[in-house]
Design a protein around this nucleic acid. Sequence first.
RNA 1: GCGAGAGUGGCGGAAUUGGCAGACGCACUGGACUUAGGAUCCAGCGGGCUAACACCCUUGGGGGUUCGAGUCCCCCCUCUCGCACCA
Length: 863
Amino acid sequence: MQSRYNPAKIEPKWQNVWEKGRIFEVSEDESKPKYYLLEMFPYPSGRIHMGHVRNYTIGDVVARYKKMRGFNVIHPMGWDAFGMPAENAAIKAKSHPATWTYTNIAQMKEQLKQMGFSYDWTRELATCDVSYYRWEQLLFLKMYERGLAYREKAYVNWCATCQTVLANEQVEAGLCWRCSETVEQKEMSQWFLKITDYADELLEYCDRMPGWPERVLIMQRNWIGKSEGALINFPMEDSEEHIQVFTTRQDTVYGATFMSLAVEHPLSLKLCQGKPEEAAVKEFIERTKRIQRSERTSEFFEKEGVFTGAYCRNPMTDERMPIYVANFVLMEYGTGAVMAVPTHDQRDFEFANTYGLPLKVVVNPPGAELDVDGMEEAYEEDGVLTNSGEFSGMGSAEARKAINQYLESTGLGEASIHYRLRDWLISRQRYWGAPIPMIYCDKCGIVPVPEDELPVVLPLDASLTASGGTPLPTLKEFVETTCPECNGGARREVDTMDTFVESSWYFMRYTCPDYQKGPLDRARNDYWMPVDQYIGGIEHAVLHLLYSRFFTKVLRDMGMVGQDEPFTNLLTQGMVCKETLRCPEHGWLAPEDTDEEKPEVYQCRKCGTVAEIGRKEKMSKSKGNVVDPGDLVERYGADTVRLFCLFASPPERDLEWSDRGVEGSARFLNRLWRLVYEERQALQGVTSYDSSHPLEGELRALHRKTHQTIKKVTEDIEQRFHFNTAISAVMELVNAIYQFRSDDNHDPQALPVLRLAVEMALVLISPMIPHIADEMWEVLGHENSVVEEQWPQWDEEAIEEEKQLIVVQVNGKLRNRIYVSPSASNEEIQETALNDERIKTFIGGQPVRKVVVVPGRLVNVVI
RNA sequence: GCGAGAGUGGCGGAAUUGGCAGACGCACUGGACUUAGGAUCCAGCGGGCUAACACCCUUGGGGGUUCGAGUCCCCCCUCUCGCACCA
C-alpha cells in the first residue's frame, strides 16, 4: 500500500477486477427478488457531461446498495443513437452520421467505464443498430394492423431550421424544443400514432403511481387535459343544417347569445357567401391565418372577430344568435366552434362588449342576483340557474347532468369528453432515423412492408448535403421498390421515425437484447419488468415518459408484455449549475476568456473590464460555465467526482458546482486513505468486535457511533435517497475514529472495536466511492469486492445512550441541559429538572403552572 | 392569470413525527508541525453585548394556533419551474 492516495492507479485496477469477475452481469434468478434500476440513456454526443455524471452516479449508488441488500439487480446502459446532431456533425466533418455516432459511443463508453459505474455491459444496445430498429419497425406494423398507426393530412408543426415536422409535445411555447426556432403550421400528410386511444387510461393511472413525483403527474394530467362536457347542435336560421359546439358549461346554454367560429372552420367562408359581409370576412380570415399560431395564442394578442351575416338559433330558447368568426377560436380543440355566453365567460364578455352583443344572466352566485347592467366582468363560477326554463333553480353541477340528459333525449346533443392530447406525429423528414416500413403504390395505395421483408434497412451510402434535408428521396435504390400486393412499381416511405419512438421501449429490450425471434422475450421481460427505479431529468416529464407509458400499454394489449406501467418509481434529478461570468460588452465569458486579477476578480480578456459574477445557471457551452468530467477525473479521480455530486445537494435539487467543494471531497478521500494506511499494521489479523464483551467509556461510544451511522446511512438511502446526509454521517464516524485514535487505549477490545468502525465506514460509503473502498477493503485483508458483501444491520441496543440528554426549557426558552437514565420515568425526569439549580433561579420562586415532559427530549416548565 | 416548488450563517446544505436551529462540508481566523506550506493536525467560526460567563436577537415579512413553530394555519413579498385564449 502506498502512503499517498493515487486514484489514477487504483481506479483502473478495480474497474478491471469488476469486469473480469463479471460481478454486474445478471440473469434471471427466481431465488432472489429482482430490482431493475435504470437511468435515462444518453444521446452519444461524444463526451459525457456533468448532468450524465450526476444522473448515473445517483443510479449507481442505488444499484450497488440494492445488490448489497440481496437483490438481483439489473442495471443496463445503452445509446439513444438516432437523431439530428449526428447529421449536422457529419456534414460539418464531411463524414457519415454512422461513423460519427459509433465513434462517439466508443468514447463515451470508455468515459462511463472510467467512472466505475456498475453496468451490465452485455445488455448494451444502440437504437441505430438494425438489430434494434428492425423490431421497432415490426411494432409499427403491428400498430398499423390495429389501427393505432395511421397516415393523415393535417396542419402540423414544421420547424424550418430542423427541416422536419414535430409532435405537439416537442413544441414549447411555439418554439422547437431542440433549436428554439419558431414553429410554423403546414398542411401535410403524415404518420400518427393513436395515443388518444389511451388518453383515459394514461390519465387514470396518474392516480395510481405513488412512486412518481407529484409535479410530473400534474404535468401529464395537464397535458392530457380531459374536459367533460357536451356537444350541442345549434340549428341554422335559414337552413336545415346546424353548427355543433363542444362546451364544458352546458349549464349556461340558455345564456348563449352569439356564436364564434374558428377561421379555419369550413362554415366560416360558406356562411358569408354572397352576403355583403363576404369581403370583410375573407379579408379577416386571410389576415388571421397568416399570423403565427404562437402569436395568436398569446395572452397579449387582441381578440378580434367579424360578423358573417348569418344567424343560428339557440336550441333551448330559440333566440337568434349572430355568427362571428373570431381569431381566438382554435380549430383543433373541440369542434372549432364556440357557443358564446358573455355573462359567464370572460373572453365572451369582452368580445360582446366590443361588438355590442346582448348579455343574459343565467347563473347567479349562491344567495345573490346578478344584474346585466352593472356587470364589470363575467361570473365564471358555478351557481344557481336562472332564466333557464325547467332547469332554473338547479345548481350548476346538477344542471349539467340534467341538460345532458335533455340533449340526448331530444337529439339536440350529447354528453361528451374532449382531450387536449393530440395523436403523436412520428414522421420526420430526416435521414438518421428508423425508416417507416411503408410502401406507396399507385394502384394499391398505402401498403405495409410484409413482416418477412423486414427490416427496411437505412441505406448507409447516402451523402448528406450542407443545405440540409434528407437524402433518402434521392436514393433510387432505396425509394424504388415493388408493391407487395400487385408486384407493380412502388415507392418507399422516405420519412423516418421520431427518435422518441426508440426511447419508448428500449427499457424493455434491455431485458432480452439478444432476442432474435421478436421485439421482446416475454418470459425474461416478465421477470425483470417493470423498472423499479427510473432516474433522469425533469425535461422529459411529458415527452419521453408519456410516450413510454403509451407504448407499454400498447404492447400489453398486443400480449407482448405483462405490465400496465413501465416505471414504478421515478426520481427526477436537478440540473447541474455553476456561476457565470459576464462582460457588459462581450457577453458570457468562459474562464479561458478571462484573466484573474485578484482572487475572485476576473477581467474580460478582450476589453479588460471586470466581469460581473452572474447568477448560477445550468451548465452550458454558450454560457461558458461547463466543467468537463473527463478533466476532473484525470485530476482527482472518479471517486472524488462521484462524492462531490452526491454530497453537494440532495438528488432532486439543483446542484451548484463548486471547485472548492471538489477539493473538499478529495480531502475527505485522502483522510480516509491515511486512516487505513496508518492503522493497517495494527489492524492486521484483528477480528472485528462481535458484541461478546461488554464495552465501557470511549470504546462503547465509538461502537455506538458505528451503529448509529449504519442506521442513519441505511435510512437515508432506503427512504429518501438523501446521499448528502448519508455521506455526512460517515464523515462524522471517520472524525470519531480519528478522535478515538489520538487517545492511547490499551483495552484489549480497542482494536476489534476500531476495526469494526473502520470496516463499517468503508462498507457504508462503498456505493458512493467504490474504487477506494475496494482498495482499502483489500488492505484490511479481504479478498472479495465490498459490493459482494451484505449490507450491515444495526443493533438497537448498541445505539442506546447510557445517559439521555434532556433539554430543560422555562416558558419555551432553553435554560439548561440535564442527563437522565434512559429508563427514568416522566416523574423522575420532571423532578430532576425542577431541582436543577439553574432552573430554580429561572423559576425564581414563582408558582409553576404546568410542566410538559417529552421523554427522551425535553422538559418545559411553564410559570 | 392558473398550478407546483422554494426562500435557513459569507457559501453548499442539515434539522425525517411540532421539541437543543445551523449536522456535515466549503470559505475564513488563530495555533502546532515545518527549510517551506496551497500538505497535515488542533482549536474557533450566525448576529448583538461581553475580559469571560450570562443574557438578548435570529430560519423572506406580518399575524395566528400551541407549554413549545424553520416545521401547522391565514395574509403578503421574492425567486424557480410548468401550463396558459382549451370553449
